[in-house]
C-alpha cells in the first residue's frame, strides 16, 4: 500500500488501513445473534462428544454389524476360539493368528476412524466450520451495512479496496480463533482419538477457514443478506455438490478441505471405502487450490467493493 501524503506529512493511507483493521477487530467483540448460535452449537457438540467419550468408547469393539448379532469384539474373540482346532497345522494356525491380530489392531485404532468420520468430517468440517466462519466473516461488512455505518468508512481518504481488505484481515483472527478454539475443544472432548485428529486435521481447518472466510466476506460485499446467502451455500451447495460423484464437487471448498484431511490420514485407513468414489486430490493440490481460492475471492471482493455503491440509508 502506498504511503500517501495528504493533510500533513505524517498522515498515511497505511496508517489509516491499520487503524481500520484495529477498529474492526474491536467491533467484532460485540456478540451478535449468529455468534451466540455458534457458541451454542459449540457447547452442544462438545457436551455430546464428551458424553460419548465418558460413557462409551469411540472404538467399534462394542458395535454390532447386525442389530441382534455379536459385537465386533465378540467376532474377534470367536476367531481366537477355533485356534485349538488348528493345533495340528502350524501354518494354518499362523494365518489364523495374523487375521486375529489384524482385526484386534483394527478395532484398537477404530476410535480414530469413528471420530474422524462422525465428528470431524460429518459434524465439524461440513457443518460447524462453515457456520462459525460465516458468523464472523459476514459480520465484518454486514454489520456496517446493516447498521448503516458504512458511510463513515466510505467518506475516509482510503481506497475502497483497502477498506475491503482491512475488513477481511480484521475478521480473520475471529474466524481462525473461533474455529481453532472450537476444534481444540471438540477434539479435547473426544479423548485419545480427538487429540490425534487435532494433530492431523488442524492444517485443513486453518486452510478451510481462510477460504470460507474469503467467500463469506465476498457475500457481504455483494449482498444485503450475506448470512442467508452463506447458509444456503454451506448447507445446500456444499452438502449437495460436495458429495456428488464426478468432478462437479471440485467446485466446492469443502472438497479440498476433506481431501487435505484424507491426505493427512492416508496411512490410517480413515475412509477406504469412500476413496474410490470420492477421488480426493493430494494434500499439496488441496493447499494450492485453497490458497488460490482465498486470494482470488479476496481480489474479486476488492474489485466488487470498489465499484459498488452502498445506498442502504439513501433517500433521494
Amino acid at each position: 500500500m502506498t504511503q500517501q501524503n495528504g493533510l500533513e506529512p505524517g498522515t498515511s493511507t497505511l496508517r489509516a488501513w491499520l487503524a481500520l483493521v484495529r477498529l474492526s477487530i474491536g467491533q467484532q467483540f460485540r456478540v451478535r445473534m449468529m455468534i451466540w448460535i455458534a457458541l451454542g452449537l459449540l457447547a452442544i457438540t462438545s457436551l455430546m462428544i464428551l458424553s460419548i467419550t465418558v460413557l462409551g468408547d469411540w472404538r467399534q469393539t462394542d458395535d454390532r454389524p447386525r442389530r441382534r448379532g455379536p459385537t465386533y469384539g465378540q467376532h474377534a474373540q470367536r476367531l481366537v476360539a477355533p485356534r485349538s482346532v488348528l493345533a495340528g497345522n502350524p501354518m494354518a494356525g499362523g494365518v489364523q493368528d495374523a487375521i486375529t491380530a489384524s482385526i484386534s489392531a483394527s478395532l484398537q485404532t477404530s476410535g480414530f476412524r469413528v471420530f474422524s468420520i462422525f465428528v470431524v468430517f460429518a459434524v465439524f468440517q461440513q457443518f460447524l466450520l462453515p457456520l462459525w466462519t460465516l458468523s464472523f466473516a459476514t459480520d465484518a461488512l454486514g454489520r456496517e451495512r446493516e447498521s448503516r455505518t458504512m458511510i463513515w468508512l466510505l467518506t475516509r481518504p482510503m481506497p475502497r479496496s483497502a477498506i475491503y481488505l482491512a475488513k477481511y484481515v480484521a475478521a480473520l483472527p475471529w474466524c481462525l480463533g473461533f474455529n481453532i478454539f472450537g476444534f481444540v475443544l471438540v477434539c479435547a472432548c473426544g479423548g485419545e482419538p480427538g487429540w490425534m485428529a487435532l494433530r492431523l486435521y488442524m492444517p485443513a481447518v486453518i486452510w478451510g477457514t481462510l477460504a470460507f472466510a474469503a467467500l463469506f466476506h465476498l457475500f457481504a460485499a455483494i449482498s444485503r443478506w450475506p448470512a442467508v446467502l452463506g447458509l444456503i451455500y454451506s448447507f445446500f451447495f456444499e452438502l449437495l455438490v460436495g458429495t456428488l460423484p464426478g468432478d462437479l464437487k471440485r467446485m466446492s471448498i469443502g472438497y479440498y478441505v476433506r481431501s487435505l484431511m484424507y491426505d493427512a490420514t492416508q496411512h490410517l485407513d480413515v475412509a477406504p471405502d469412500q476413496l474410490n468414489v470420492y477421488a480426493p486430490v493430494s494434500g499439496d493440490t488441496s493447499i494450492t487450490v485453497l490458497a488460490a481460492v482465498t486470494i482470488v475471492l479476496t481480489i474479486i471482493g476488492m474489485i466488487a467493493f470498489s465499484r459498488t455503491e452502498y445506498r442502504e440509508d439513501l433517500a433521494t
Partner: peptide, 13 residues
C-alpha cells in the same frame, strides 16, 4: 478520534 485515525493521522495528531 477514530475517524481521525481512519484519515491516516498519528495517534498524537
Amino acid at each position: 478520534e477514530s475517524m481521525a485515525l481512519l484519515c491516516g493521522m498519528t495517534r498524537r495528531q
